[in-house]
């Protein structure tokens, strides 16, 4: 099956600064992919490249096998909810649905209307008077009612309160379960992604630090605690992501597909947050290191 997003050597430069560089990535279909990284890591740049709002400076990107925003057909296959979930302040909720219906041949008005009703939005209300959560839900409605194969969301919940955040993610998951769409979702907060993502991409310092299925990543990463030890003496199959030492003790996060037999170590499972933080820290300290990629 075609990858929903396929990037090869992808880079984007603004004047002299590379916002994204050497990004090679292949997101399989049917996933909810979480794109995590600190602010300014290049998440928005990558997503804008994927929806064709930006053109690459280097490398190539294809989305669902096509060039982003190249044709009305390509645009119809990808739904996008931009950061801050922009809507037309002067237009009413009903106007927005009208806009969606007129500009998208595949518009599902039943889905749109039932969502607006379920959300309890007044169709006559101007979008400018909606709360942040309601506006985000309206933007999501516009994006899902065009019935895209891939839904791309750029920090959709970043500015929402916890309740609105939960409601938004519920709506999103309901759509994914009901319509079998793929999703790429960015956030700088791991907690937003932990429940919803089954594919993870960590972006830091304009580079992809880690990408892969969440289950695989969690199964192959471990935290080892034990007597102080030089990371260089670990077996060849164990790649050290992060290491810290006191005068007697060493704590390391390692990646390995082999079981760890050394009885000196206490082996612990990592949470997604531990994993993301380890790779973000690695990206921040070794900015120039080549991307650590899991290609399967």
């Amino acid at each position: 099956m075609t990858a929903v997003l396929d990037a090869s050597g992808l880079g984007k430069r603004y004047r002299r600064r590379w916002a994204l560089s050497d990004c090679t990535l292949s997101i399989p279909p049917g996933r909810v992919a979480g794109l995590v990284g600190p602010n300014g890591a290049g998440k928005t740049t990558l997503l804008h490249l994927a929806v064709g709002l930006l053109t690459p400076t280097a490398g190539t990107i294809t989305v669902l096998g096509g060039r982003p925003a190249a044709s009305p057909q390509q645009l119809a296959r990808v739904g996008f909810v931009a950061q801050e979930t922009p809507t037309y302040a002067a237009l009413s909720v009903a106007d927005h649905l009208q806009l969606g219906a007129r500009l998208n041949p595949g518009w599902d008005s039943k889905l749109a209307d039932s969502r607006i009703e379920q959300l309890g939005l007044d169709p006559g209300q101007r979008a400018g008077k909606l709360s942040g959560g309601q506006r985000a839900q309206l933007a999501l409605t516009l994006a899902v009612a065009k019935r895209p194969e891939l839904l791309i969301l750029d920090e959709p919940v970043a500015s929402l309160d916890p309740l609105a955040r939960r409601e938004f993610l519920q709506s999103l998951m309901e759509f994914v379960a009901g319509h079998e769409a793929s999703v790429v979702l960015s956030s700088h907060l791991v907690a937003d992604l932990e429940r919803v993502c089954d594919y993870l991409i960590v972006l830091a310092a304009a580079r992809v630090q880690l990408a892969g299925e969440v289950d695989d990543l969690l199964a192959t990463h471990h935290r080892l605690t034990g007597p102080r030890r030089d990371p260089a003496t670990l077996p060849a199959g164990q790649q050290v992501i992060e290491a810290s030492h006191t005068d007697r003790q060493s704590t390391m996060i390692v990646r390995t597909s082999e079981p760890i037999h050394d009885p000196a170590w206490t082996v612990e499972q990592l949470s997604m947050e531990d994993l993301v933080l380890a790779y973000m820290a690695a990206g921040a300290t070794v900015g120039r290191r080549p991307a650590l990629e899991v290609q399967r």
Partner: peptide
Amino acid sequence: EAGTLRLAWNQSITRTR
């Protein structure tokens, strides 16, 4: 300024049109 181009240009219509 309002960011609404990002909404308009992701409907099924090219930005040229």
